[in-house]
Design a protein around this nucleic acid. Structure first.
Lengths: 227, 227
DNA sequence: CGGGCACTTGATGCCCATCAATACGTGTGG
DNA sequence: CCACACGTATTGATGGGCATCAAGTGCCCG
């Protein structure tokens, strides 16, 4: 979802500006900020979709649950990403802050009003929804047809693109989160990471199991079969 | 994708009309028809997206392949459904006719031109893309977290809604297609259907293994855990 | 009418889930 | 500051669900 480089994330309003939400020219639209504590819910599935969010700092997971507790995470939202853009009256995922997270928020209604008149804004809403769709389509292939090692390799390459800074990838999410994103168990994720470590494809920084260095991106890429 | 009743399918232009593509008022846009033979490709992944399609008669599968041949079907397109709406310059799936299939087609460029000026058309493009996204999101949960029996039950309920006429569901697709849609093998799909048959939940019409009658929808629904 | 494709059903195997034990890191309170 | 508790991760042992391999049936289509 929203593939975005570190550079993008560092220019904070990038994505909302893309939507045409320039506060100078659109005084109607207010960009409020809010901070969620680690683990707290931003919104629940089926709640009315009142706001659209952009991650300023932190990370968010959005997921669906089965009645017996099985969880599928559909996406992780990192700095710069926009989420909660449902384009329907209610949210289709539950979202939670993975770590302490600050978001900007915009009333959905404001967005729709602007999109009504501004073709450019409408176009950008469509292109963001299409990005989300493309991510979901690729993820269906992963969930339906890839092995555990391929899934973990694909995950690392996705995160490498989205949050590596200075060669170090600092994952905000736990093994369980990764597992629920990849349709695996946390043990299987852990074993796959250990295996990649043994193979010399990745290393851990110090004793922090969430700080990872990719030592051999080509070999990692070769483990995940091309689309 | 595009949940649609038999009644909808019988009013042929329903969906393209929704898009605002009324040929009377938009003489620019021509609605051509074309028929694809069973098994033939409509377009390939990464080909430039020149047309948008609507199924008039027949059925279409859209899928992605891994380099070693593993296949994931992302959606089935039945009578009335619109597909190929990529909103980018190239297609993200390969699509093939499952049976002999007639489609209407519209130049993508025409659509974009109209959407430029007509907010209503733009709105409908967005809402169709959102429908596709919602289907993909639900399918991620199925692929990542449901058991084989749950998947097959969910498949039957989806198809029941979309193509049951006179109480009979006539599936156009093979067991292999169903398997590649559900992230299973064809044997597992077959066993699940046999099991549902034994349980008295479904019956087959005559000796045609693709004509199914649902005998106990409530029980079928109970096998697939609520979202 | 014959050949082959689609489907079912059975036997076996393997990958990943589950169950379990241990280690480690972090935060807390005495 | 250290003991302790708890959450997170790793690693090992075992099991199960689905994949794979295989055989047989029936039907569609040439």
């Amino acid at each position: 979802m929203f593939v975005r480089s570190a550079a993008d994330a560092s220019s904070p309003l990038h994505s909302l500006r893309e939507l045409g939400l320039n506060t100078d020219s659109n005084p109607i639209i207010s960009l409020n900020e809010f901070t969620y504590k680690k683990g707290s819910e931003v919104y629940g599935e089926k709640e009315p979709a009142e706001y659209v969010y952009q991650v300023k700092r932190g990370a968010v997971r959005s997921y669906k649950l089965l009645s017996d507790g099985r969880r599928q995470i559909g996406a992780f939202h990192l700095a710069g990403d926009i989420f909660g853009l449902e384009n329907g009256s209610s949210h289709r995922f539950t979202t939670e802050a993975i770590v302490d997270t600050t978001v900007r928020l915009v009333r959905r209604q404001s967005l729709e009003l602007v999109a009504q008149d501004d073709a450019m804004v409408a176009r950008n809403l469509l292109s963001m929804t299409t990005s989300n769709l493309q991510h979901a389509e690729d993820h269906m292939l992963l969930l339906g047809r890839k092995t555990s090692l391929e899934r973990v390799a694909a995950f690392l390459m996705e995160m490498d693109q989205r949050l590596t800074a200075a060669g170090i990838m600092a994952l905000p999410m736990s093994r369980r989160d990764i597992a629920d994103y990849l349709g695996l168990t946390l043990e299987t994720v852990s074993r796959a990471l250990s295996r990649l470590h043994e193979l010399g494809i990745l290393g851990f920084i110090g004793n922090n199991q969430r700080q990872i260095v990719l030592l051999d991106r080509p070999q990692l890429a070769s483990l995940d079969l091309q689309n």
